[in-house]
Measured scan of single mutants.
Amino acid sequence: PPDDERKKAEKAARSGNEEKAREILERLGYSEDEARELAKRLR
């Protein structure tokens, strides 16, 4: 489910793995720019 994926992205971002967070968010349908912004904010 998307919620689980989003949680994974948050966890990745918090542990400093912004790249992985961005990949997950892009898979969820965010654009590259949106995903980058979100990954930064989740950190």
Rank of each mutant, 00 (worst) to 15 (best):
1 P>S: 14
1 P>Y: 14
1 P>N: 15
1 P>L: 14
1 P>T: 15
1 P>H: 14
1 P>W: 14
1 P>K: 13
1 P>A: 13
2 P>Y: 14
2 P>G: 12
2 P>K: 12
2 P>C: 14
2 P>I: 14
2 P>A: 13
2 P>W: 14
2 P>V: 13
2 P>L: 13
2 P>F: 14
2 P>N: 13
3 D>I: 11
3 D>T: 11
3 D>K: 08
3 D>N: 11
3 D>Y: 11
3 D>S: 12
3 D>F: 09
3 D>V: 09
3 D>H: 10
3 D>L: 12
3 D>R: 09
4 D>W: 12
4 D>G: 08
4 D>V: 12
4 D>E: 14
4 D>T: 13
4 D>C: 12
4 D>A: 12
4 D>P: 10
4 D>N: 10
5 E>W: 15
5 E>N: 07
5 E>M: 14
5 E>L: 15
6 R>K: 08
6 R>A: 08
6 R>M: 15
6 R>G: 04
6 R>Q: 08
6 R>D: 03
6 R>S: 05
7 K>T: 13
7 K>H: 10
7 K>N: 10
7 K>C: 13
7 K>A: 12
7 K>I: 12
7 K>W: 12
7 K>S: 11
7 K>G: 09
7 K>Q: 13
7 K>M: 13
8 K>E: 14
8 K>Q: 13
8 K>D: 10
8 K>I: 10
8 K>W: 11
8 K>L: 13
8 K>G: 05
9 A>G: 04
9 A>H: 04
9 A>S: 03
9 A>Q: 02
9 A>C: 06
9 A>R: 03
9 A>E: 03
9 A>M: 04
9 A>D: 02
9 A>I: 05
10 E>S: 08
10 E>V: 14
10 E>P: 04
10 E>N: 05
10 E>G: 07
10 E>D: 04
10 E>A: 14
10 E>F: 13
10 E>M: 14
10 E>H: 09
10 E>I: 15
11 K>G: 06
11 K>E: 15
11 K>M: 15
11 K>S: 11
11 K>C: 14
11 K>Q: 14
11 K>F: 11
11 K>H: 14
11 K>T: 12
11 K>P: 02
12 A>L: 15
12 A>D: 03
12 A>Y: 15
12 A>V: 06
12 A>R: 04
12 A>P: 03
12 A>H: 10
12 A>T: 05
13 A>N: 02
13 A>H: 03
13 A>D: 03
13 A>Q: 03
13 A>Y: 05
13 A>M: 05
13 A>T: 04
14 R>N: 05
14 R>Q: 10
14 R>M: 11
14 R>P: 02
14 R>L: 09
14 R>V: 08
14 R>T: 06
14 R>Y: 08
14 R>G: 03
14 R>D: 03
15 S>R: 12
15 S>Q: 13
15 S>W: 09
15 S>D: 13
15 S>N: 12
15 S>M: 14
15 S>H: 09
15 S>A: 14
15 S>K: 07
15 S>E: 15
15 S>T: 09
16 G>F: 07
16 G>T: 02
16 G>A: 04
16 G>W: 06
16 G>D: 05
16 G>S: 05
16 G>V: 03
16 G>M: 05
16 G>E: 03
17 N>A: 06
17 N>L: 08
17 N>S: 06
17 N>G: 04
17 N>P: 03
17 N>M: 07
17 N>F: 10
17 N>Y: 08
17 N>T: 03
18 E>L: 15
18 E>R: 03
18 E>N: 04
18 E>H: 06
18 E>K: 02
18 E>M: 15
18 E>F: 14
18 E>V: 14
18 E>A: 07
19 E>K: 13
19 E>W: 11
19 E>S: 10
19 E>R: 13
19 E>G: 07
19 E>Y: 09
19 E>F: 10
19 E>D: 11
19 E>V: 11
19 E>I: 12
20 K>L: 15
20 K>S: 08
20 K>H: 08
20 K>W: 11
20 K>A: 12
20 K>N: 04
20 K>Y: 12
20 K>E: 12
21 A>K: 01
21 A>G: 03
21 A>F: 08
21 A>N: 03
21 A>M: 06
21 A>T: 04
21 A>W: 08
21 A>D: 02
21 A>Q: 03
21 A>E: 02
22 R>H: 03
22 R>A: 07
22 R>Y: 05
22 R>Q: 06
22 R>T: 05
22 R>L: 06
22 R>F: 04
22 R>E: 02
22 R>D: 00
22 R>M: 10
22 R>N: 02
22 R>P: 01
23 E>L: 13
23 E>F: 07
23 E>S: 08
23 E>G: 06
23 E>M: 11
23 E>K: 12
23 E>Y: 08
23 E>N: 07
24 I>P: 00
24 I>T: 01
24 I>Y: 06
24 I>E: 02
24 I>H: 04
24 I>K: 02
24 I>M: 06
24 I>S: 01
24 I>W: 05
24 I>Q: 02
25 L>P: 00
25 L>Y: 10
25 L>T: 00
25 L>F: 14
25 L>R: 00
25 L>H: 00
25 L>M: 02
25 L>V: 00
25 L>I: 01
26 E>N: 05
26 E>A: 08
26 E>H: 09
26 E>Q: 15
26 E>S: 08
26 E>G: 06
26 E>D: 01
26 E>P: 00
26 E>Y: 06
26 E>M: 15
27 R>G: 10
27 R>K: 13
27 R>L: 09
27 R>P: 01
27 R>W: 06
27 R>Y: 06
28 L>V: 02
28 L>C: 09
28 L>M: 14
28 L>S: 02
28 L>E: 01
28 L>T: 01
28 L>R: 01
28 L>G: 01
28 L>I: 08
29 G>V: 01
29 G>K: 00
29 G>D: 01
29 G>F: 02
29 G>T: 00
29 G>Y: 00
29 G>I: 00
29 G>H: 01
30 Y>F: 11
30 Y>A: 02
30 Y>P: 01
30 Y>I: 04
30 Y>E: 00
30 Y>T: 00
30 Y>R: 01
30 Y>M: 08
31 S>L: 02
31 S>E: 03
31 S>V: 00
31 S>A: 05
31 S>G: 06
31 S>H: 04
31 S>N: 08
31 S>I: 01
31 S>Q: 04
31 S>W: 01
32 E>P: 15
32 E>Y: 11
32 E>W: 06
32 E>G: 06
32 E>H: 11
32 E>C: 10
32 E>I: 10
32 E>A: 14
32 E>V: 11
32 E>D: 06
32 E>L: 08
32 E>K: 13
33 D>V: 08
33 D>W: 09
33 D>G: 07
33 D>T: 10
33 D>S: 13
33 D>P: 07
33 D>Q: 12
33 D>L: 10
33 D>I: 10
33 D>M: 09
34 E>F: 05
34 E>W: 04
34 E>S: 05
34 E>K: 05
34 E>D: 10
34 E>H: 05
34 E>V: 06
34 E>C: 10
34 E>I: 06
34 E>Y: 07
34 E>P: 01
35 A>N: 01
35 A>I: 06
35 A>K: 01
35 A>H: 02
35 A>M: 03
35 A>R: 01
36 R>V: 05
36 R>H: 04
36 R>Q: 05
36 R>Y: 08
36 R>M: 07
36 R>P: 00
36 R>N: 04
36 R>E: 05
36 R>F: 07
36 R>C: 03
37 E>W: 15
37 E>Y: 13
37 E>R: 14
37 E>Q: 12
37 E>F: 11
37 E>N: 09
37 E>M: 13
37 E>T: 11
37 E>V: 12
37 E>L: 13
38 L>V: 04
38 L>S: 00
38 L>F: 07
38 L>W: 06
38 L>M: 12
38 L>E: 06
38 L>A: 03
38 L>H: 02
38 L>D: 00
39 A>M: 08
39 A>Q: 01
39 A>L: 14
39 A>H: 02
39 A>S: 03
39 A>K: 00
39 A>C: 14
39 A>W: 03
40 K>W: 12
40 K>E: 09
40 K>A: 12
40 K>V: 06
40 K>H: 15
40 K>G: 06
40 K>S: 11
40 K>F: 09
41 R>G: 02
41 R>D: 03
41 R>H: 08
41 R>T: 05
41 R>N: 06
41 R>C: 11
41 R>F: 10
41 R>E: 04
41 R>Q: 09
41 R>V: 05
42 L>G: 01
42 L>A: 04
42 L>H: 02
42 L>F: 14
42 L>Y: 15
42 L>E: 00
42 L>Q: 02
42 L>K: 02
42 L>D: 01
42 L>V: 03
43 R>P: 01
43 R>T: 07
43 R>N: 06
43 R>S: 10
43 R>A: 14
43 R>F: 15
43 R>Q: 06
43 R>Y: 15
43 R>M: 12
43 R>E: 03
43 R>H: 10
